[in-house]
Nucleic acid binder design. Structure first.
Length: 576
DNA sequence: AGAAGTTGCGCG
DNA sequence: AAAGCGCGCAACTTCT
């Protein structure tokens, strides 16, 4: 276990105000919803039954009076119904999300006992119904919820640095934001999407089948392969046909085909490109995923072990750049589009307190700073070197450049090299706020153990070493990717907090559901946000995004001088 | 027939 | 099988 004294600082709640002490458990019951005020050290006795009516008013009143942190089992289960009923929660403690963190964390002596009862449920794809107690498996007894909360409080309290308190608050805020973004949706112009598809793929045949441009490329490929009836989507068949005309590739991947000079290559690559767009985000996707001018993906906060969000359905995190112009604000509204350039190396510089690397990170372009430091000659080299350092490249151009960074940024490089070493040895590493990597599984450990015997087959030793290095690269990247995810989470929470201070919109955006009258987050992807805001509030919302970034940086790294600059635009349509 | 695994490619 | 991290998804092949 590693404790960094610089992580010790007074932690405040993520919503920006000093943490209030009031906690109220909000629990699903057989008949509806119950509120249970929680007082430290006292049994939870007062249970307030909340019927279907008046919940919104009651919660709003409590928010006003006591600004409690609502203890909930899971925003994913509970919040869609609340939102549909017009209830908004400001701050929560999400027991399911925090369970995962506090169960695995390596920064305290006695983490949470793992329990199957707290594994996230599958995302609910059905339309939210109003408190009809249809929770799968039935609602969890209040006593059990309270007991789990008290255990989580114990673990958080045992971390004297306050990191876990901040992480759990941020993670819980993420749980709310994920549901709010789904409820609001990403404004999506289906006509523009259709126009792009028609332009790129060609006219859509009336009776289904392949669009014109795709068909033309496919015919060209078949012609050059001398294979009239060839099915291009079957890799084995395509590969054999390529071999017959002397294109000796081992796979049909675009990077390998791109190396070859042959008349079939150009139409084949073009076909693959179009085919991808057609199957991933074609008209079928549009019909299935865009309703009433909104794309509503399912976000899964903490869905990646590093703490990044995952998504389920709709490919929310893979929307191709070419379709970005289909993201369009409603009339009278604007988009605020913001992302961070090179977030991960900036996090590395700060978490390793590497002042030389932080100096290189000053301003908009970290890679230019690396060139200026003299470590490498071109920006391109800087990029490969930095990525190679974080991903664990050992060979190729990238691997060749990494040692140069070790000379110029020894502290930063030591941080990732050490994480890799721990991972190779089967150990656990943690992010800046204390989210820890999974332990190696039994198979991995058995393989390593088997490879240490004196009379082991050299091939087994080699395989074991390779698996150990695989894990080293994973833990190397874990600390950086995971800390970047923490920064982004706090950024999001702070944006949300600020947007809630803005007045109601002059003109509503009817498609945005509960957020029709309020500036809101509409999309989030690792280091990028899209806000949908009334146009008269666009500047204020942009300021909120900038302030939130500054606060996130300070909350994580205090006074350490690290720049985290934003590329921010106020636009009607998201650009490519 | 359906589950499970593979390939390839979109995103950061 | 990109030189190196993390994902989700569609379409295909192979296994049961």
């Amino acid at each position: 276990m590693r404790r960094d004294p610089r992580a010790h600082r007074r932690i405040r709640s993520v919503s920006g105000e000093p943490a209030a002490d009031q906690r109220i458990l909000l629990a699903q019951t057989e008949t509806g919803l119950a509120a249970v005020p929680l007082v430290a050290g006292e049994p939870a006795t007062e249970i307030i039954e909340l019927g279907g009516d008046g919940i919104a008013e009651w919660v709003a009143r409590e928010e006003e009076l006591r600004s409690p942190r609502w203890v909930i089992r899971s925003a994913r289960d509970l919040y869609p119904r609340l939102l549909a009923a017009g209830v908004r929660l400001t701050r929560t403690h999400d027991l399911v999300l925090c369970h995962a963190i506090l169960r695995d964390t390596d920064v305290v002596a006695r983490p949470l006992a793992p329990s199957e009862d707290w594994i996230p449920r599958q995302p609910d794809t059905a339309e939210p119904a109003l408190f009809d107690a249809d929770e799968r498996g039935g609602p969890m007894p209040i006593a059990e919820l309270v007991a789990q909360y008290r255990e989580q409080v114990r673990v958080i309290g045992s971390d004297r640095t306050g990191r876990l308190a901040l992480l759990c608050a941020a993670e819980s805020a993420g749980g709310l934001i994920a549901e709010e973004m789904r409820a609001a949706g990403l404004p999506w112009d289906a006509d523009e999407h259709d126009r792009i598809l028609t332009e790129v793929l060609g006219a859509r045949p009336a009776g289904g089948g392949m669009p014109a441009h795709m068909l033309a490329h496919a015919e060209a490929v078949r012609f050059h392969l001398g294979a009239p009836g060839l099915h291009l989507d079957s890799h084995p068949k395509l590969l054999r046909a390529l071999h017959r005309v002397g294109v000796n590739v081992e796979s049909t991947s675009q990077w390998e085909l791109g190396e070859i000079s042959h008349p079939v290559i150009a139409p084949l690559l073009a076909y693959k490109k179009l085919s991808r767009l057609m199957s991933a985000n074609g008209w079928a996707w549009l019909t299935e995923w865009v309703r009433d001018g909104r794309f509503r993906p399912v976000y899964i906060p903490g869905g990646v072990v590093t703490g990044r969000w995952a998504s389920s359905g709709g490919g929310a995190l893979q929307v191709p750049r070419i379709l970005r112009p289909a993201v369009r604000a409603d009339p009278g509204w604007m988009l605020v589009v913001a992302d961070v350039a090179q977030l991960e190396p900036r996090m590395l510089a700060a978490m390793s307190a590497d002042r030389a690397m932080a100096e290189a990170a000053r301003g908009q372009d970290l890679y230019a700073g690396v060139v200026a430091s003299g470590a490498v000659v071109t920006r391109e080299e800087a990029k490969y070197a930095v990525l190679g350092a974080m991903y664990g490249a050992t060979t190729g151009d990238s691997g060749r450049l990494v040692p140069r960074l070790r000379k110029v940024y020894p502290r930063a490089m030591h941080r990732v090299d050490e994480a890799a070493r721990i991972g190779e040895d089967g150990g656990v590493v943690s992010t800046w706020l204390g989210r820890s990597s999974p332990r190696p599984d039994a198979g991995w450990q058995a393989q390593q153990a088997a490879a240490t015997g004196a009379d082991t087959d050299p091939a087994d030793v080699k395989r074991a070493r390779a698996r150990a290095r695989d894990r080293g690269r994973f833990t190397r990247n874990f600390v950086v990717q995971g800390t970047a995810a923490e920064w982004a989470l706090i950024w999001l929470a702070e944006i949300r907090h600020r947007l809630r201070q803005l007045p109601d919109a002059a003109a509503p955006a009817p498609g945005s559901g509960p957020f029709a009258r309020q500036a809101h987050l509409a999309f989030f992807l690792h280091d990028e946000v899209i806000l949908h805001v009334p146009q008269e509030q666009a500047d204020a919302a942009a300021s909120a995004v900038r302030e939130a970034a500054a606060v996130a940086t300070r909350r994580l790294f205090g006074d350490f001088p690290i720049d985290v600059p934003l590329d921010l635009k106020i636009v009607r349509t998201a650009e490519k």
